[in-house]
């Protein structure tokens, strides 16, 4: 393989329900930085049905070029059809780097594409850099269950690929009117070539507050001792009007469902306030919440790593502190309403 033939940074643009996934815009921000360092082009690759109009947005967020596969067969995301489009594009234009959001779609697609190319793929990356002269992608992620960070390289194969955690990279502010080159591509693909079919898409409306969209998150860890103890987290979340989060241990112990899990193997969150109660602060958890605006930790163990990652810490027994906090909070809010002439 002649590595010199490969150039440019690509971002897979994920589109769903008529919108570009936020992680794709974040990756255009990260990709722009890599492309500038390499002095090469940043491109988006967009696959779907009636999606060409998104090109304008992709340019505004930093892309120089966009490759568009706009065909009815791409109406639903399916591994085999999307993979074929991507492989076609890779073969024709030979990118040096491809980034995907670490979403269910991005991870599914990247794994398939990596095998067929073949090339190396780093999963769930949280830090990205590139060597200016060699173009070597430095993709870092928490490893070994999140106990440590590792930098993964793919020296001899191109393109180099990584899936990147949502909400870790920053999108650039859109530059209105910024434009670029739109390249239309298509592949010959019949419905009978595709062995899967999406029969139905069911949107779950039962979840009260989606944890990745909440302004306030109250998260609990193994320090709460039991499923009963974890109720304390629900109590505080309810009082503050927040969503409930959990550490990996708690989910694995079965105290709460997986969609509440914050961290490397759960959801990445950036709320305005994040409470970590009885959470020790393993790297795997920290990477999922460290960009929160205000982090408050409550833990019995003064040595817990979470105290190094928080803005305010209380060393103490959650079973004493949290009920006091709930009570005081209710009192203060009632007081605020009186002050402002509201009803009590």
């Amino acid at each position: 393989m002649n590595l010199e033939e490969y150039s440019g940074v690509w971002v897979f643009i994920e589109e769903k329900n008529g919108e570009i996934a936020p992680v794709s815009l974040e990756l255009l921000g990260a990709g722009r930085r890599l492309a500038d360092k390499r002095d090469c082009k940043l491109s988006g690759i967009l696959i779907g049905n009636n999606i060409s109009h998104h090109a304008a947005t992709v340019f505004e967020y930093g892309a120089d070029t966009i490759y568009v596969y706009d065909q009815p067969i791409f109406n639903d995301y399916r591994t085999e059809s999307y993979m074929k489009a991507l492989l076609h594009c890779c073969e024709k234009y030979k990118p040096e780097i491809i980034l995907y959001g670490a979403t269910s779609t991005g991870k599914d697609l990247a794994s398939a594409v990596a095998t067929d190319l073949p090339t190396g793929l780093t999963a769930d990356t949280t830090e990205l850099d590139v060597e200016e002269d060699t173009g070597l992608l430095l993709a870092s992620r928490p490893a070994f269950g999140g106990n440590i960070m590792a930098t993964i390289l793919c020296k001899k194969y191109r393109p180099q690929m990584a899936t990147v955690r949502p909400k870790v990279m920053k999108a650039l502010p859109p530059e209105i009117g910024r434009t670029g080159t739109l390249i239309r591509e298509q592949i010959l693909l019949n419905e009978s070539d595709i062995r899967t079919k999406v029969l139905e898409i069911v949107t779950d409306t039962t979840k009260k507050v989606r944890i990745d969209e909440a302004d306030i998150i109250v998260a609990g860890g193994k320090g709460l001792g039991s499923a009963e103890g974890f109720q304390l987290v629900h109590l505080l979340a309810e009082t503050l009007g927040g969503a409930v989060g959990a550490s990996r241990d708690v989910v694995e112990a079965g105290w709460i469902e997986h969609h509440h899990q914050v961290g490397q193997t759960g959801v990445t969150v950036t709320p305005k306030i994040y409470f970590a109660i009885g959470v020790s602060g393993a790297i795997q958890h920290l990477v999922g919440m460290r960009n929160s605006s205000l982090i408050i930790a409550i833990n019995k163990d003064p040595e817990a790593a979470i105290f190094e990652a928080c803005h305010y810490g209380i060393v103490g027994d959650a079973f004493e502190i949290v009920p006091l906090l709930v009570e005081q909070f209710k009192k203060s809010m009632a007081g605020e309403e009186v002050k402002h002439g509201g009803k009590v």
Partner: peptide, 12 residues
């Protein structure tokens, strides 16, 4: 047969 290698591990 492995394109990827762990170049370094580090405690953040």
């Amino acid at each position: 047969g492995s394109p990827t290698i762990v170049a370094k591990v580090w405690a953040p």
